[in-house]
């Protein structure tokens, strides 16, 4: 069976501002990597997002310390925050557990320090995000690359398999893992979600490979006697790395939302583990009486997802300048509302 859909050769690859050459001067004498880095660092929100993510991750992981090993013999490096999320310190200066100097995010009715809970939740949410994102990027890239490069029956089989994976509901995966592997912590959940979230990425990578394998440089490599493996890894993959990186960042932000959604429904992270989604789900009823319990986890989820989205946007701009447009004088005229005069003149 032949490949079902095939994009016609995409021979045209516009380069930013190539008709005037003015923008080419900016990138003259730079390598591809340097150009991409340069473009990325020009995108201010993306840089801000990246810095925020780095600082936040360091903040979170140093606050609650690092927990390795099993429950029986834990290997813990203590963090700088005085309370662990399992501690039950006495009620602070504020009677109803509202935020104070010792408990910056307030306390639960039983005295638990909410800051340490939120930090622990962020730690787990970040971990889940990275596992899901990494795993699905790997599977999606391999599937899409193989399907797109070899085409034909391999492509059909792999794309129908992708359709098949697309039909499995996440909520069910959460339920199965929660029931069978609930006492192994959140790691199995992250792994299994990662095994099922990749179809979108695979489709994108496949499309990219389908169009790239028809290009002249691939033909040239083939004529020069390059093996399939070499063509894939040396010629096509570096050219499609933009699509992969960009959609992986978007996958990261959607996986943190997926985790919180599942935890909200009760199929994600199970007690005694906490995650940001689980915290919101537990304390949504407190919105009127103890709003800080509801606000903090939500604000942190939004901050994480927002900064990842900005990083993704910056990467997209850096890798794929096709969407950047030089604004011509005529268009500027349109923008300033003097279009009518332009048309008449």
């Amino acid at each position: 069976m032949a490949s079902l859909l095939k994009r016609k050769k995409n021979t045209q690859q516009p380069i930013e501002g190539n008709e005037t050459g003015s923008s080419n001067l900016e990138v003259l004498g730079l390598s591809q990597g340097q150009i991409i880095r340069k473009r990325f660092f020009q995108h201010k929100p993306a840089v801000a997002g990246l810095i925020f993510m780095a600082c936040f991750a360091i903040f979170v992981y140093t606050a609650s310390g690092i927990h390795l090993g099993t429950d029986a013999n834990p290997l813990t490096i203590k963090g700088w925050w005085q309370f662990a999320h399992t501690d039950l310190p006495p009620q602070g200066p504020c009677a109803d557990g509202c935020p104070s100097a010792t408990h910056p995010m307030g306390q639960l009715p039983n005295g638990r320090d909410y800051f340490s809970l939120v930090m622990r939740g962020s730690e787990i949410s970040l971990m889940i995000m990275i596992v899901i994102g990494g795993l699905s990027a790997l599977i999606g890239t391999v599937t899409g690359a193989v399907a797109g490069f070899f085409g034909g029956i391999i492509d059909s089989v792999m794309m129908r398999f992708t359709d098949f994976i697309l039909t499995v509901p996440f909520i069910l995966i959460g339920a199965v893992i929660g029931y069978n592997l609930g006492n192994f912590g959140v790691f199995p959940l992250a792994i299994f979600l990662g095994l099922f979230i990749w179809p979108g990425l695979a489709r994108l990578v496949r499309g990219e490979f389908l169009s790239l394998r028809e290009r002249e440089f691939v033909d040239a490599a083939r004529v020069a006697g390059a093996s399939n493996r070499r063509i894939i890894f040396k010629h096509i993959l570096p050219n499609s790395v933009g699509v992969i990186i960009v959609s992986t960042t978007l996958l990261l932000s959607s996986s943190i939302l997926l985790e919180s959604g599942l935890s909200y429904l009760g199929f994600g992270v199970q007690a005694p583990d906490v995650s940001l989604g689980a915290l919101i789900s537990t304390y949504q009823g407190e919105f009127i009486y103890a709003p800080w319990l509801f606000w903090w986890p939500g604000v942190i989820i939004i901050a994480i997802a927002l900064s990842i989205n900005f990083v993704g946007d910056g990467l997209r701009d850096a890798f794929d300048p096709r969407q950047r447009r030089r604004i011509s004088r005529k268009e500027r005229a349109v923008e300033t509302g003097t279009r009518a005069q332009v048309n008449k003149s």
Partner: peptide
């Protein structure tokens, strides 16, 4: 981007 990052159950409560 802000709407992308918004958990629907969080906005629903508000």
């Amino acid at each position: 981007f802000f709407l992308f990052s918004l958990p629907i159950f969080w906005i629903a409560v508000m």
